[in-house]
Simulated scan of single mutants.
Amino acid sequence: MSDASDIRHSNCHSLRIGIAGAGLLGRLLAWKLLLLGHRVSLFDRGSRAGELSAARVAASMLAPYSEVASAERQVFDWGLMALTWWPAQIALLAQQTGQDIHYGVDGSIVVAHDLDKSSLRHFEQCLQAKIPDRADGVERIDRERLRRLEPELAEHYSSALYLVDEGYLDNSALLVALEMAITQLGGQWFEYSEVLELSPGRIVLSGGEQSFDWVVDSRGLGAKSQLPGLRGVRGEVLWVHAPEVNFKRPVRLMHPRYKLYISPRPGNCYVIGATEIESESMQPVTVRSTLELMSALYSVHSGFAEATLLHAFAHCRPAMPDNLPIVNCESGLLTVNGLYRHGYLLSPQLVEKALAMFTEQTENSVAV
């Protein structure tokens, strides 16, 4: 483990920055701003464990090909950056904190049962239409090739699609490492702090207000009153421990009604999801969703029959009307929001854009 001072940049123009919302974006920006030498305070309505953050309820797949089939081309172009950005940041976090964050960028596998092969063909056609210049990243593979990539899938499927440039990361370990890194760099946590209002240089809490040189608004749905059109999209995931299943890559099952995804974690654990509901309900995962997910899961690999259900999580992800994220920057206020279902895929693009805009504004201010 390295001393935090070894990797912090010196900054003769250190600013006091208040960040409202300590989810994925809030933590990444806090960490990066601390590394630049600024003084950062984080305010969140939950604890630093992030139990109220949408960042916890995610498979955290880095899947630009899979997502662009039903999204704008920008999602693919921005998402490609994540495949190299995350490994570099994970290495830096490990250097600072000594924490291991499991990840993989060895592609993903898409399969379909015989009755649903038309859904797989349609998915492949959508990719060819959306990204004709990157079609070499989509490989149609036979059973023998599948056996070399994921032997246990080859027992049930004679063909599949191999999306070469995709991956995943362990979001739970990442959130823990970011909390440690922020604390080591001197970031101040204000847990269970409900932000009532904010404006450039000012955060209003139930116990009063605090002033800063800059404020970052990364509250997700908490910013609805200040971002017209912001809405919640409910997602549900299951965590299972399946000792009889050994997948090295994310696996997707094409289905006429939903797309099941299985994202691996250390120790034969997997995150399972598929639901995307236009609802802002924060109620627990429904019985219907659980039954559908578990039934589809068993159809992918019979070893899931002996799996243990560890967790069932539901949360609402913030989305703008066009489902694309935003970065707004004015003097004293930086707003980042709207990651929708692409949190871990698009956060690298959003963080780097936000930091660039912030740096340009602050440097111009100093020059004046």
Rank of each mutant, 00 (worst) to 15 (best):
E280W: 03
Y298V: 11
S172F: 13
H315E: 09
K259V: 14
D44G: 00
R27L: 07
L29I: 05
E278G: 04
V336E: 01
R45Y: 03
T290W: 05
A307K: 06
I90F: 10
I203W: 13
V240H: 09
G201I: 05
S60W: 01
R56H: 11
L309S: 02
R202D: 04
G229T: 08
L221A: 03
A54Y: 11
I326V: 15
Q361W: 09
G79V: 04
A305P: 02
R265E: 12
A307P: 04
F358M: 09
S119T: 13
R27H: 08
S302I: 03
L198I: 01
V237L: 11
M254N: 09
A367C: 07
G222H: 00
E150P: 10
L42I: 09
K248M: 11
T362W: 08
G232K: 09
Q226F: 05
L24I: 09
I262S: 07
D142P: 03
S158N: 12
V300D: 01
P266R: 12
I109G: 02
A356E: 10
Y168P: 05
A112R: 06
F76A: 08
P318M: 11
V237H: 02
G18V: 08
R56W: 12
Y261R: 00
A112P: 04
D133R: 06
G21V: 00
L345Y: 04
Y103Q: 07
T97R: 02
G186M: 13
T359H: 13
E292H: 07
F123S: 05
T362M: 09
